[in-house]
């Protein structure tokens, strides 16, 4: 049987051995660092489809697992993007909650979500629809107007551009 030989841990005062590409071993990229970078990007992209926490947490995990003595550049980038993705998501969540609270709807919808019927397939969409209606009402917008304007492509929020108003043709700029 081959004797068990550990890899030595180099004393910090001695120069670190260089790996391929001329970088110190601790800064060499590996599969985990690449995965961390990809998850970091997905964490930022995931903000558009509510997946930033999933990819962000995975990115942090991969970055930490890739660490030798220090983080390599790819892992560092992945870590920063993953943390940013989660941070932005949490900030957006906080803003949403504060909007709900300022409209006096937080308790009502927290109760509805807590007591949701798991057997009702339309329960979630019902809550979403009611929430949108209540928020529109809270900000002085008629939900019916909002829906008809959505179909026509106009915004009812700006009173100068109603669904009866003609949008002035500016003609744009010619380059």
């Amino acid at each position: 049987m081959e004797p068990f030989k550990q890899q030595d841990f180099k004393h910090p005062q001695y120069p670190e051995p260089l790996g391929p590409g001329g970088l110190p071993e601790s800064l060499q990229s590996n599969g985990m660092a690449r995965a961390a970078a990809i998850c970091g990007v997905l964490s930022l992209v995931g903000l558009f489809f509510n997946a930033s926490v999933f990819f962000g947490a995975l990115g942090i995990l991969f970055a930490l697992l890739s660490r030798h003595k220090r983080f390599c550049n790819q892992a560092k980038a992945g870590l920063i993007m993953s943390i940013s993705g989660i941070g932005i998501f949490l900030a957006m969540l906080a803003v949403s909650i504060s909007i709900l609270a300022s409209a006096g709807l937080l308790k009502k919808y927290t109760d509805r979500v807590v007591h949701i019927d798991p057997n009702d397939p339309t329960a979630v969409t019902d809550i979403e629809e009611d929430l949108l209606n209540d928020l529109l009402k809270a900000y002085g917008i008629d939900p019916k107007d909002f829906r008809s304007s959505q179909i026509q492509g106009n915004s009812p929020i700006d009173p100068s551009i109603g669904h009866d108003t003609e949008i002035p043709q500016t003609g744009g700029t010619t380059l």
């Binding site: 962000g56 995975l58 995990l61 991969f62 697992l65």
Partner: peptide, 20 residues
């Protein structure tokens, strides 16, 4: 803390955390 992080990945992170 690693396990808590894995919970955020809906358990997918455990695939790599367990061997570690």
């Amino acid at each position: 803390p690693w396990l808590l992080l894995s919970i955020l990945t809906l358990g997918v992170g455990l695939i790599w955390l367990l061997p570690y």
